[in-house]
Design a protein around this nucleic acid. Structure first.
Lengths: 229, 229
DNA sequence: CGGCTTCTTTTGTTGCAACAAAATGTGAAG
DNA sequence: CTTCACATTTTGTTGCAACAAAAGAAGCCG
């Protein structure tokens, strides 16, 4: 279970323990193992992942570097509890970056890509019906990043993924409420149709809509404290 | 000499040696101390900066994490030698991010900001006239980031800075040729005027033009090998 | 003289321990 | 019951040494 992990197609060198720990922590973050406000210490991570303190520290530092974890005090790193301002900024960045990726994806799409997209959407629908929200969340991510990867720009995709990682834990806490009221299905459908038609503007609009809807949901969840730790 | 350094207004904790080393390396990278293709080793950095291997390794890892340094082999990190594809991707990202920042800056600008901008532009002109290209480069960065910071979005600014850091070393190698033929002065002038008029689209266009011109220069410099190590 | 193999040196990785500083728990006083 | 000060514990930092692996140099064979 790791679809969008090794996003960067860079010169691959033997992955070291620090990288492994980093990936594992990322995974747990997106899976909702840790919730906003949870504290992460070097030693606890080291023990939980079965490594020594050095790679554990490496991993935490990297997560902090890309804001997937934040400092709550001089010696305490926690899973970020998003403020309204944070959410607003992330949304603007997402609109710019994911909008760009979507437009670029249009030029490189293959017929089979649309097929795959529809297939993933089927999985999302099934998962929602079965109330398997974790699975729905997963396939939703698959849907988006299948498109983004089509842009052919690995760093762009990595930057987008970093933003998803920032909202991930908060997002997870909002389920299943979010999935229930969700109209994302409609946005996805529009994205698929836009892709078939080759309508670049429509594709971007579909994704922007999806992002904006997520923003509204998350924001209202934030305001009445449904998310906090 | 450090204008755009502590971009993130996050919860400040006592900066540790690793952070210091990271900042110092960043500075040297933007200053052209290291050139594309140069190899950086843990021990050499540790000695050069007068720290032990642990913080040196921390710093290098962080630089690699945000692509300011790249792997050339399993055990060799070098200052990136940009490919045409790299440059293209960076430019797209810059257009999206810096365009966004410029638009947002418009809403928060104060009259004094325009003053400061004009002041910086004067410094750029003087530096160009005196052929002090390093200074011109520096003030150019000041100009851009003064605007970007007005967006009020610290993470956005940090992401933009990361992109600048990627092209920094290659850019530096292109001087003074770049500065000579430069029409950036005109773009900056248009940006200032757009800001006075409150014309958001014009402000964005001015910055996009600047980015695109830089792209063309850098690309042609890349193609006839004026940049390589 | 060129290409390949082998050997030496360099280099990243990782675990660990000592240190300093912050966080937490405890208790007393108001 | 709250608040503040103190003591204890937890936690991040950092230097270092041993290990493994890769890079670079030297030598050998074709």
């Amino acid at each position: 279970m790791s679809a969008t992990q090794s996003t960067l197609g860079k010169q691959m060198q033997a992955p070291n323990l620090g990288d492994t720990t980093y990936e594992e922590l990322r995974d747990r973050l997106t899976r909702g193992v840790y919730r906003p406000g949870d504290k992460l210490t070097v030693r606890s991570v080291a023990e939980a992942l079965g490594v020594s303190s050095t790679p554990a520290r490496d991993a935490i530092n990297r997560l902090v570097a890309d804001n997937s974890l934040v400092y709550a005090g001089p010696k305490t790193v926690i899973v970020p509890v998003l403020t309204e301002a944070d959410l607003r900024e992330i949304t603007y960045i997402r609109l710019a970056l994911e909008g760009l990726a979507a437009e670029l994806a249009m030029e490189r799409r293959q017929p089979e890509d649309v097929e795959n997209l529809m297939e993933i959407q089927t999985k999302i629908n099934s998962a929602l019906l079965a109330k398997s929200y974790a699975a729905a969340l997963w396939h939703n991510k698959e849907f988006h990043f299948l498109v983004y990867r089509l842009s052919g720009m690995p760093h762009l995709v990595a930057m987008i993924e970093a933003q998803w990682l920032r909202v991930g834990p908060s997002f997870y806490g909002l389920y299943p409420h979010f999935a229930e009221e969700r109209q994302g299905v409609r946005n996805h459908q529009m994205a698929i149709e836009a892709m078939m038609d080759g309508d670049r503007g429509a594709l971007r609009a579909a994704f922007e809509n999806d992002i904006r809807e997520g923003y509204r949901q998350l924001r209202s969840g934030l305001l009445d404290g449904r998310i906090r730790s």
